[in-house]
């Protein structure tokens, strides 16, 4: 086993451990646990079975195997970032709406006092 493979396996183990910790602690919503869990498994396969990347590259007709990694993960990260921007925009609206409702409620319940 090459040095780099050992490093890769350790890194993947760390990554999976991190994800598992977040899932157990309930800090990740299920949909994100699924995405990151799948990522962990994909990483694990690539680090344990080195030839998998070459086989995959051959299958897609990619001459330089590592470029497959770049193209695949660039694409995934892009999609995921767009998704997060959408989520963020929605939450921005929701938080604003909540704050407005709270301000109105505060006025109704205590008729003009600062803080709650």
């Amino acid at each position: 086993m090459d040095k780099i493979q050992i490093i890769a396996i350790i890194a993947v183990a760390f990554f999976i451990g991190l994800i598992a910790r977040f899932i157990v602690k309930g800090k990740l919503r299920t949909e994100y646990s699924i995405i990151w869990g799948l990522m962990g498994i994909i990483f694990l396969v690539f680090s344990l079975w080195r030839r998998s990347l070459d086989l995959l590259a051959e299958f897609f007709g990619v001459y330089y195997a590592p470029s497959l990694i770049f193209i695949f993960f660039f694409f995934m990260i892009f999609i995921f970032l767009i998704h997060l921007s959408v989520v963020n925009s929605k939450q921005h609206e929701q938080i604003k709406k909540l704050a407005q409702e709270i301000a109105l409620l505060k006025e109704r319940s205590s008729n003009g006092s600062c803080k709650v």
């Binding site: 704050a99 709270i102 301000a103 006025e107 600062c114 803080k115």
Partner: peptide, 10 residues
């Protein structure tokens, strides 16, 4: 008469 926002909303 006033309203007091719980957070800064702009």
């Amino acid at each position: 008469q006033f309203l007091d926002n719980p957070i800064n909303i702009g």
